[in-house]
């Protein structure tokens, strides 16, 4: 589904990603871990198409198509979803209105008619109950005055509504208390199927107790320096990142 090869990217002339290779197939859950500043968020931004980042080398293929030629909204239309580490506030725009615009713009790009209001409402109710969200949520201004946990839950709610092929969850666990983490993780697990894929970006093992990855990769200084299964995450939890750093050539 996603194939990243030899990806080099940076911002303002500083190279942050220094040759990333990563392949994610449908039905898989991958986790990327790594110390601060290793390039995890840069990787998610580059895949989503944030223009501040410059790709100097390499390719990102998504379902056989070169993502590099596509604008961020076009990537979204193809089914790439990014759950933001810091979701953005848009005052005066309700969650409902935002989602409606988002869904219908995506459908328009896919040559579909706008989703009928009753279908959308039904779906909203369904997904909200999945994530144990209050109905009042829908009429609030997007992310404005939301607690950290509400913002993250709202990201997953949008993901549930948009049903992307590839969901990149950038530190979705940060800011969530243990109950909220369980609910969000449970939501992600229920949305998971053999046709979609999840890329988790996280510092901590605890999210991986709930969303179990098929593969774990360690990102360090802009490169994936180690890959393994879920046990690698446990090992990291126990030993920290220092042993990884030590293994690297100076």
């Amino acid at each position: 589904m996603l194939k990243i090869s030899n990806l080099h990217a940076g911002i303002d002339g500083t190279e942050i990603l220094k040759g990333i290779d990563l392949e994610i197939k449908a039905g898989e859950v991958h986790a990327i871990m790594g110390p601060n500043g290793s390039g995890k968020s840069t990787l998610s931004s580059v895949v989503a198409g944030r223009e501040d980042y410059e790709v100097t080398q390499g390719h990102i293929d998504f379902e056989g198509e070169d993502l590099m030629d596509l604008a961020p909204e076009e990537r979204a239309h193809k089914g790439v979803f990014l759950s933001f580490q810091y979701p953005i506030e848009i005052p005066g725009v309700t969650v409902t209105n935002f989602l409606k615009t988002s869904i219908n713009e995506t459908r328009k790009a896919q040559g579909l008619e706008p989703m009928p209001a009753n279908v959308m409402l039904k779906k909203m109710r369904e997904k909200m109950s999945l994530l144990e969200m209050d109905k009042g949520f829908l009429s609030r201004s997007l992310n404005e005055g939301f607690s950290g946990g509400e913002k993250k839950r709202n990201e997953i709610f949008q993901m549930a509504m948009l049903e992307p092929k590839l969901a990149i969850l950038d530190e979705t666990d940060s800011g969530l208390d243990i109950d909220a983490l369980r609910i969000v993780a449970n939501g992600v697990n229920k949305l998971k199927n053999k046709n979609n894929a999840v890329l988790l970006i996280t510092h901590y093992q605890r999210l991986l107790d709930y969303i179990v990855p098929d593969f774990v990769h360690v990102l360090y200084k802009g490169k994936i320096v180690k890959s393994g299964d879920k046990n690698l995450a446990l090992e990291l939890e126990e030993r920290g990142y220092d042993w990884i750093k030590e293994e690297q050539p100076a």
Partner: peptide, 28 residues
């Protein structure tokens, strides 16, 4: 903010639509 626009873009909303959405929210 560019952040707001990118957030909208990532949800499939193009730039012009995003501006309209943000401005309408501001004027609500």
């Amino acid at each position: 903010g560019e952040d707001q626009i990118f957030y909208c873009n990532q949800r499939g909303i193009g730039e012009e639509e995003a501006i309209a959405l943000i401005v309408n929210g501001y004027c609500k």
